[in-house]
Simulated scan of single mutants.
Amino acid sequence: MTKTIFMLFLMALFLWGLEMAFANEWERVDAPAYGQDQSIGSYANGCLQGGEAMPLVGEGYQVIRPSRNRYYGHPDMIAYLTKLAARTKGFGLDDLLIADISMPRGGNFTSGHSSHQTGLDADIWLSFTPDRLKQSTLEAPTAISMVDLKSYSLRRDNWLEEHAILFQVAASEPEVARIFVHPVIKETLCEMAWEDRSWLQKVRPWWGHHYHMHVRLRCPDGNASCVEQATPPKGDGCGSELISWRPKPKDEQEKVVTTKKKKRVKVKPEQCLIVLRQ
């Protein structure tokens, strides 16, 4: 029994070391893996085969911080972003700023993201630009927050009608699974009058997303190794679920007892080893 436990411990230690080694290797790869396009694993524990680079400039968009080399995605994501930018341009919006998608072969980031690993996640900043930005500005753009984080309220001096159009157009596409935004932004969209509210179901509250939106696509057809996220709850998500995100009174916060969870070691799908070593 003791020998079995020891062997399991060694195996766990080996897998942990393997995962830690891979974490940085993904960032050192500078080109996509050849082969049929495949999103492998889950959004926060996977990789990408046959990824495409997003052209740095196109109709209705510009890619920011290109030196980070995070503008690769599954072809479905590149097609979606290109289509979205063209559509919003048609509605009169200025250029979208496309931020991180994935690295050339997806995989782990040392910092900044836990997801964005399969080429099916993309960040779009909530800033528009009417002009072609200089290279220096593209590399170091200024983020504009839509939320006053201290007062938990919308910064109406920064919020534009165009933002609402962007969210509606972005979430209405059938390939979109979720769009993560700060809860205050979700509340703002919920309070608006919409003839069709079905797309609001996909707009999910999540901390940190006050200056950008995080778009997540469904697993593409034929990608058998892609792990889909559960479908969002029914309804527009504008009721009690959203209210639960609001800050609690201080005295109530003090009554909450938090327990520290052990960090679970994530083991990559075996296919990702092949993708990494190509």
Rank of each mutant, 00 (worst) to 15 (best):
L189F: 11
T129W: 06
A53I: 08
R105S: 09
A85R: 10
S145Q: 05
S111G: 08
T88S: 08
L56D: 04
D123Q: 10
H113A: 12
G107N: 05
D95I: 00
F128S: 14
R156N: 10
L81R: 07
S136I: 11
D121E: 15
E59V: 08
C190R: 00
G51C: 06
I98L: 06
W159R: 06
T188V: 13
V184Q: 06
A140R: 15
Y152G: 04
K186F: 00
I179C: 02
M54I: 07
L160E: 14
L48Q: 07
A143I: 10
I124C: 00
L96F: 05
C47P: 11
P130L: 06
G58C: 07
P141H: 09
I165A: 07
E139F: 01
F91Q: 14
A164H: 01
P104D: 08
V147H: 00
Y61P: 09
Q62C: 04
S114C: 02
I165D: 06
S153P: 02
Q49L: 12
S136P: 03
A85Q: 07
T118Y: 02
T188R: 14
S145K: 07
R178M: 10
P141L: 08
A177Y: 06
E59T: 15
H182P: 00
Y72S: 07
G50N: 02
A122D: 09
C190H: 03
E195G: 14
A171M: 03
R156Q: 13
S153C: 00
F167W: 10
R155M: 14
D100V: 09
E59C: 06
L166Y: 08
I64C: 01
E162R: 13
Q49H: 00
I144F: 09
N158G: 02
D148M: 05
E187S: 13
R70Q: 14
S153K: 14
S114R: 15
A143K: 14
G60Y: 00
A171T: 09
R65K: 15
R105V: 15
D157F: 02
